[in-house]
């Protein structure tokens, strides 16, 4: 039996259903998008082959794309905080603390709520007239700090970022908690008997043992930030004046508001290539730190 499963023919057979689905729903659309990206196409009428002109326009003549790219990179950079923050919270939740399940619930709750609900909820909190945030500022005697949080170019992206961080932290905590629970108690106890302090245990035992998970979450974090879409779309649609535009919302606007399907495909394909490139580079870098 063992021999049969390891047999390559059987391997392919069992993989076939999943592979077919993957081919049809993931690989083929990517190939199509790359073809569309070379066309001048409104999504309905005839396609007109224009070679690399869409890409040329994207990189040389689209200030909104650059703005969106900068915003996406800001989002990516700031959401890297989630990794140490998630790790610290997971370690904290893994110790014996009071109200443990309460804190767990509080941290996980935003993760299980749909983004649409969160977006609408937070848009109300940020509402300059009836919103909780501005009212709270007044109540605390800080009325001069009141702002139109989602309406001002200086604060819109930041205001969304706070919600993104709040929403996604739960995922990192779950992953790390699962990892922590796999570390055998005996190992920690043995270290304690040998006189290791908590910080030594954390830095030299726990983190190295979680290194595979940290790698995974880092790649996951970078890729999700690159293609981030939902809360931006729900809360501001990239406004005001594209101050909160990210690459994915720019792509959406091009495809569905402006009927530039070919151009939007060029954005999509660029985004895809960026994701592939980054995961490749990160994997290479991590290979050196294999434990």
């Amino acid at each position: 039996m063992n021999g049969k499963i390891l047999n390559k023919k059987w391997f392919t057979l069992f993989l076939l259903p999943a592979l077919t689905l993957y081919l049809i729903f993931v690989l083929l659309p990517i190939v199509w998008a790359s073809i569309y990206s070379l066309q001048d196409w409104d999504g309905i009428g005839a396609m007109n082959f224009i070679c690399l002109q869409n890409y040329f326009k994207l990189f040389t003549d689209d200030p909104i794309f650059w703005q969106a790219l900068v915003n996406t990179l800001v989002l990516m950079g700031i959401s890297l905080v989630l990794i140490p923050a998630g790790l610290i919270m997971a370690i904290w939740l893994n110790t014996k603390i009071m109200l443990k399940s309460f804190f767990k619930t509080v941290i996980f709750l935003p993760l299980v709520m749909p983004s649409v609900v969160l977006g609408i909820l937070w848009a109300q909190i940020y509402n300059p007239i009836s919103g909780l945030l501005n009212s709270a500022l007044v109540a605390f005697g800080l009325p001069h700090l009141q702002r139109a949080w989602l309406g001002e170019p200086e604060t819109a992206l930041l205001a969304i970022l706070v919600v993104v961080l709040w929403q996604s932290i739960g995922f990192y905590v779950i992953v790390y908690l699962a990892g922590l629970q796999n570390i055998p108690e005996e190992m920690i106890e043995a270290a304690k008997i040998d006189g290791a302090t908590d910080s030594v245990i954390t830095l030299q035992i726990i983190i190295p043992l979680l290194s595979n998970l940290i790698k995974f979450t880092l790649i996951f974090n970078i890729i999700t930030s690159l293609k981030y879409f939902d809360l931006v779309f729900i809360m501001t649609r990239g406004q005001p004046d594209h101050a909160s535009e990210v690459v994915a919302t720019h792509m959406y606007n091009q495809a569905f508001d402006l009927y530039n399907y070919g151009y939007a495909s060029a954005i999509a394909f660029t985004l895809f290539m960026a994701c592939v490139f980054l995961s490749f580079v990160l994997n290479r870098v991590f290979r050196r730190y294999e434990y």
Binding site: P128, I129, S130, R147, A148, E152
Partner: peptide, 16 residues
Amino acid sequence: FPPGYQGVDYMTAQTL
């Protein structure tokens, strides 16, 4: 316009 008009959405303006 209302204070913070740039952050005022459709429903808020109508309510005002």
